[in-house]
């Protein structure tokens, strides 16, 4: 009798209290995602101070060209479209991952990666063009603030791309288990969050300068 109970306890990791274990893992997952959300909110504060800096310095062009003369709105609309499209493909990947469809998840994550890479390529091209025209970050306080703000967003997207590549590999290697799902849930929040920041960038940097 005693023996059989012990045996059950030993096997407990896999069999009888499976509900308990799953519940525990579920709670841990929720805590991780909540913790990640708190990190995102602190990231929000970094962007808030960069936006405030830009707003204060936007008029200080040091006799150089203003945003209205420098920025190419149709080009920015293209960048916006790419980032929005990548948010959409990540949303679809998120659904596929909840349905445990591994192949479809990897496919949509790859689509997100390619579109995100396109966004970064456009941004690097835009920055290179500005610098070549003599409107680099050292030209005026306005341009310093602009490159810092938009560059910080670009660096975040780049970090997101690296994380995406890692998660594509992990999904292929480990499948959609609890750990991979939890990490993908955090990455999903991160990616959508960057889209939110970009809404503020195109509104308060590009469009406001063009008015």
């Amino acid at each position: 009798m005693n023996m059989s109970i012990q045996m059950q306890d030993l096997g407990g990791d896999h069999l009888p209290p499976v509900d308990h274990a799953e519940q525990h893992e579920h709670d841990a997952g929720k805590r991780t995602v909540l913790g990640f959300w708190i990190y995102l909110m602190s990231d929000c504060l970094i962007f808030a101070s960069l936006f405030a800096t830009f707003a204060v310095l936007a008029g200080n062009t040091a006799g150089g060209r203003t945003g209205k003369e420098l920025f190419d709105l149709p080009y920015v609309a293209g960048e916006t479209l790419l980032l929005l499209l990548s948010s959409f493909t990540f949303g679809i990947a998120h659904i596929a991952m909840q349905r445990q469809q591994r192949g479809s998840t990897v496919g949509w994550l790859m689509a997100t990666f390619v579109i995100g890479l396109g966004f970064i390529a456009m941004e690097v091209h835009e920055f290179a063009g500005l610098i070549a025209e003599g409107a680099g970050p050292s030209r005026s306080a306005f341009l310093s603030a602009y490159f810092t703000l938009v560059g910080t967003h670009g660096l975040h997207v780049t970090a997101g791309l690296i994380w995406l590549a890692v998660m594509i590999h992990q999904t292929l290697r480990f499948g959609l288990d609890g750990m991979v799902l939890r990490r993908l849930a955090c990455l999903s929040l991160f990616w959508h969050f960057l889209d939110l920041v970009w809404i503020c960038v195109f509104t308060f940097v590009y469009l406001r300068e063009a008015i």
Partner: peptide, 14 residues
């Protein structure tokens, strides 16, 4: 819905 709304609102902004 989120994608559609975002597209429309972005287009209106620009």
């Amino acid at each position: 819905a989120g994608f559609g709304l975002s597209l429309v609102l972005t287009a209106l902004s620009f």
